[in-house]
Write a protein that binds this DNA or RNA. Structure first.
Lengths: 250, 250
DNA sequence: GCATCGAAAATTGTCGACAGTATGCAGCCG
DNA sequence: CGGCTGCATACTGTCGACAATTTTCGATGC
């Protein structure tokens, strides 16, 4: 009766379409960070009126992609290094927990989904396609959270993931594809082969190491013991690997 | 020049006012869970038009207070027990991390703020004021996250906190004020006196124990080792405290 | 030359109305 | 008597216009 094969795909509302299109424009760099978004102009570009556009902007604002300033319009969000640092802790928490859940349930479909994305990462890395790599990386982490089974983790990824995307877009040229690939192989291995608690600890550690290295800051003391020295992440710096400052685990 | 003391409070936009009023109506139980929210009626009640009301509804939807069904209007959200269980893990992660940061920074102003709220909790508990207690509890956890210094933790609390409020509103009569007060004293002690890592572990453990007890479910195996048996939370069940199933810490 | 003021332009906040879609009900057929 | 069909109703999705606010920019005085 309600055979899903026959179900029509209904045209998305103008609000949804605008959110999708604007998200793409922002994370792709088509709209520059800090750029002012004038409602009437955007509406004209999208071919819609201001009412649905304003709802779309409000949605984007909740997702951290634009900043709404009372009475003075919206601008494209531009995360500072400090905000990125806060984001790292948050992502480490969220994705670590997601990894734990995935490692606990060991769902075949989910694991093979992640394997498939890892394959795309390897291909993009081999071909040196930075922007394709970026897109697949983002997808990898998104799937990790979305498939964890906990809707709050998925929603939390929605917030942090967009800021991640904005930041990576800016730093895309500095990314060492080989090192990043190695790290994502390690994450994949963790959720596929490890005990839940180990997988969580490992993923958390990997995310913090990789992110702080890209940010060019030291892992702060306040979360130093989130980084488990037993699992050394591949380093993007070719020089000598510096020993961890604090060796204690929790 | 821009002395904050002299700054005028500008009248909130209709959208903000509507969000505030509707949030209050929903978490206070004035609007029942699952109740349909007809735009034209709500707009008339609030004395505004549908445009700002729709933006307010979209905001509430992102905060988890209402559910928007494409083309069929919005309804008041009603979290299921399964959703509440997912929320518990999420809150344990977020508030645990917030406790770690607060314990790390030991900011006098923040600690005394928490102390003040704890005092309000004690007063409400002594007078048996369930709803006042509830409001102060919600405030306590909100301040914990908001003052952590990490805006992502604060935003995450915005999501989980509202669902918490909805759930507690429903379960308010079952809450053992004395036990809950004891647990919040413990959380307060943790962030004021403990090392950051210990405070995180303790708060995480307390939240999970308290929440699962209220929910009437067992702590699932997948996160069993989040509950640190060294810190036994006050129990709302008067009977013998059951020993922890799994003793290992991370 | 520089800060200040004020009018004009640009832009956001809000509203009422229309079009398209979902819902509920009455009537019809089996 | 139960279920399907088609219509009336109610509601959401979208639009264009007006009011209020902010920004821009040139004129004025020091």
């Amino acid at each position: 009766m309600d055979n899903p094969v026959l179900r029509l795909v209904r045209p998305p509302s103008l609000v949804e379409a605008a959110v999708a299109r604007l998200t793409d424009a922002i994370v792709s760099g088509e709209f520059k960070a800090g750029q002012r978004l004038v409602e009437i102009d955007l509406a004209a570009m999208l071919g819609i009126s201001r009412a649905p556009l304003r709802e779309a902007l409000r949605t984007l604002s909740k997702e951290g992609l634009v900043e709404m300033r009372r009475g003075r319009g919206a601008i494209v969000a531009s995360p500072t290094d400090d905000e990125v640092e806060h984001m790292i802790l948050f992502r480490a928490l969220v994705e670590g927990a997601a990894a734990r859940l995935i490692a606990f349930h060991r769902d075949k479909r989910v694991l093979s989904h992640l394997t498939a994305i890892l394959g795309q990462l390897e291909e993009a890395s081999a071909r040196g396609r930075h922007d394709a790599f970026l897109k697949h990386v983002w997808n990898f982490h998104g799937v990790l959270c979305a498939e964890s089974g906990n809707p709050f983790l998925a929603q939390a990824w929605g917030i942090a993931g967009n800021v991640t995307r904005l930041y990576l877009q800016r730093a895309v040229s500095r990314i060492d594809l080989a090192a990043a690939l190695s790290n994502h192989r390690a994450i994949h291995r963790a959720v596929c082969t490890m005990q839940p608690a180990e997988a969580e600890s490992m993923v958390r550690s990997l995310i913090i190491r990789l992110a702080y290295e890209l940010l060019g800051r030291e892992v702060p003391q306040s979360i130093g013991d989130y980084v488990n020295p037993r699992y050394k992440a591949a380093s993007t710096t070719s020089g000598e690997p510096k020993p961890a400052k604090r060796g204690a685990r929790s």
